Simulated assay, not measured.
Amino acid sequence: MNSVSAALAALMDAVSGMSGQFGEGVASHLTSTAGLQREHVETRYQGQMIDFDTLQWRVLNDSVCANQRQNAMAHTRCSQAASEMFASTCQEMTANPPTLPSQRYHSTRRMACHAAVSYQPSIGNIQWAESSGADQLAEAECNAATAALLGSSDLDAIQYQRRVCGGR
C-alpha cells in the first residue's frame, strides 16, 4: 500500500469507525462525536508518525506534530510529512470518491483539503555557525575590554569598551 493509500485508509478508518492505523478508541470516538469535540489523531505517513488535533472537522494547525516540538529537526520532518499527507489525502479523496459518499466522507475530505491549503509546515535547518578569525578576534577584544571595566569607572576604558564591542 503506497503512502497516499495508507493516509486515505487512516482517514477513512476514522470516518467509518473500522480499526486500522488509528487506534480503535480514537477512530470510534472521532466518528461518534461527529467532529464536535477536540480530538487527537495519530497516524503514520511515509514512515513518519504524525499527530494533530481536529475540532469541528478542521485540523488545528498549531497542533500538527506538537509531540515533536522539542526537537527541531524531528518537528521539521514531521510537519513536512503532514503537509504532504494532507495534500495527497485531499487529492485521493477528491479523485476517487465512493459510489455513495456519506456526510462523514464529505466532512473528512473537506477537512483534508482545508488542511492541505491552510497548513504551513515548519522548516528548520540547524548547522554549525561559521565564524571567521576576525570575528573571534573582535569578540576576544570586546571580552577583554569588558573585563577591564570590572571595578573601574575610568571614562577612557568605558569609551574603549563601547567602541570595540559596538553594542554587543
Rank of each mutant, 00 (worst) to 15 (best):
A34H: 09
A138M: 05
I126P: 11
M18E: 15
D154H: 06
T54V: 09
S63W: 00
M73F: 02
V117T: 10
H75S: 05
A10L: 07
N143G: 07
Y45D: 09
A138S: 07
S83F: 06
C165R: 11
S28L: 15
A138W: 04
S79R: 00
D154C: 10
R168Q: 15
T76R: 06
G47D: 10
G23H: 08
R168H: 13
D62L: 01
Q120Y: 04
R58H: 15
C65M: 00
G166N: 15
N2R: 05
S102L: 05
H106F: 13
A66V: 09
T43H: 01
R38G: 07
H75R: 02
G167I: 08
A87N: 02
Q37R: 09
Q120N: 15
R168P: 02
S132F: 05
Q161R: 10
A95Q: 12
H114G: 07
D13N: 12
V26K: 01
V41L: 13
S5F: 07
M73Q: 13
L100R: 10
S107E: 13
Q136G: 09
Q48H: 03
C78Q: 05
E130P: 01
C65V: 05
Q68K: 06
I158V: 11
A157R: 07
V41P: 04
E130L: 08
A66T: 06
S152V: 00
R58V: 10
P98E: 13
S132G: 06
Q68C: 01
H29G: 13
N143M: 07
A145Q: 04
A112K: 00
Q161I: 00
R104T: 04
S153T: 14
S102K: 04
Y160D: 15
Y45T: 06
A10G: 11
C90R: 00
H106L: 13
Q80Y: 02
R69L: 13
D51I: 00
E24A: 08
A95P: 11
M73S: 08
R38D: 12
M18A: 11
F52Y: 15
V59M: 07
R38H: 04
A6H: 06
A6T: 09
L155Y: 08
I50S: 03
M85C: 11
C113M: 03
G25M: 10
A81W: 00
L11I: 10
L36N: 09
A145E: 02
V164P: 08
C165M: 13
A66L: 12
L155H: 08
R110K: 14
R162H: 12
D53L: 03
Q127K: 07
S32C: 13
Q48E: 14
E42F: 04
V117A: 08
A116D: 14
Q56F: 05
R168N: 14
Y105H: 07
E141Q: 14
L100V: 12
Y160R: 15
T94W: 03
N67T: 07
D156C: 05
G151H: 02
Y105G: 01
S28I: 03
Y45H: 08
M18D: 15
D51M: 02
G151W: 02
Q161G: 05
L100I: 10
Q159W: 09
S118E: 15
A116M: 08
A14P: 01
G47A: 10
G20Y: 11
G17K: 01
H75M: 04
R77L: 09
R109A: 08
A145M: 05
E92K: 01
P97W: 06
A147F: 00
G151Y: 02
C90T: 03
Q37N: 12
V26P: 05
A116R: 01
N2M: 02
A144C: 04
